[in-house]
């Protein structure tokens, strides 16, 4: 951790889907520069919690403070906050009618109001970083899943966010493509940006995470450093989960 400053503060957050309680009184502080990995069985609320941080899901109770702004407050300028929070999705969600370069340029130009030259310069740099610059003029439909996901990471980074959210970024990928995406994410982790990652890749969690959060039934039931979590967890549910997947 680079500093001890809290950048995301989640306070007593609850969320219902009808009568189903997806999040149940969750509280969590994320520190600036921290690499946080959230794991847990499906339906445990980990994706919901992640999506709540940039308000793709609105919560029913509690407060979420991102970089000093309470985003649950209806008067908060949500677009402003989302500029600071990059998001990478399981299904990539690249814009299919735009080329790779245009995908990375678009929000820079219309949200950040950068000129095309300026945006292209930043995009070129980022596409080089995720090692896909040679495809800059292709449409997403021609790329493999792993390539699309790397473009999606570049697109989110182009906004120069303070926080990056990853929602199961490798779950939709063929096994041989998972590695190339994780490599990019590890590279990113070394640069000190705050990362919150929902994943099933335990190797990645062990290697990159400063802290691991284990969720079940909408609650955080266990957290700790990778070493504590993987080797010394006392929590029964976490143990059962780890036994199943490791």
């Amino acid at each position: 951790m680079s500093t001890d400053q809290i950048i995301v503060q989640i306070e007593h957050v609850s969320k219902y889907f009808g009568s189903f309680k997806a999040l149940s009184d969750v509280s969590l502080d994320v520190y600036d520069g921290e690499k946080l990995v959230i794991i847990g069985p499906s339906g445990s609320g980990k994706s919901t919690l992640l999506r709540a941080i940039n308000l793709l899901e609105c919560v029913d109770e509690g407060r979420i403070i991102v970089d000093g702004t309470n985003i649950v407050d209806p008067t908060a300028d949500i677009n402003k906050i989302r500029e600071e929070v990059g998001m990478v999705f399981q299904s990539f969600n690249l814009f299919p009618h735009k080329t790779v370069m245009e995908n990375v340029n678009l929000a820079q130009m219309i949200v950040r109001k950068r000129s095309k030259e300026e945006a292209t310069k930043i995009s070129t740099e980022l596409l080089k970083k995720v090692d896909i610059l040679e495809k800059e003029n292709d449409y997403p439909g021609k790329l493999s899943g792993g390539q699309q996901q790397r473009v999606a990471i570049a697109r989110a980074l182009a906004m120069k966010p303070k926080i990056m959210l990853f929602d199961e970024p490798t779950s939709a990928l063929d096994p041989e493509m998972i590695g190339e995406v994780l490599t990019v994410m590890k590279k990113l982790a070394r640069e000190g940006i705050t990362m919150i990652v929902v994943t099933h890749e335990m190797g990645f969690a062990r290697e990159v995470a400063d802290r691991i959060i284990f969720m079940d039934s909408g609650m955080i039931v266990e957290q700790g450093t990778p070493r504590d979590f993987f080797e010394h967890t006392k929590n029964e549910r976490a143990k059962a989960f780890l036994d199943k997947i490791l």
Binding site: E83, G86, F89, N93, F95, L106, A107, V111
Partner: peptide
Amino acid sequence: EGQTEAARSLGMTPFQTMRYVILPQ
């Protein structure tokens, strides 16, 4: 829906999302 989510998560307004992402498709 993912198209809207991607555009909004990049900070685009609902109008910009419609104009640059949804309608062209």
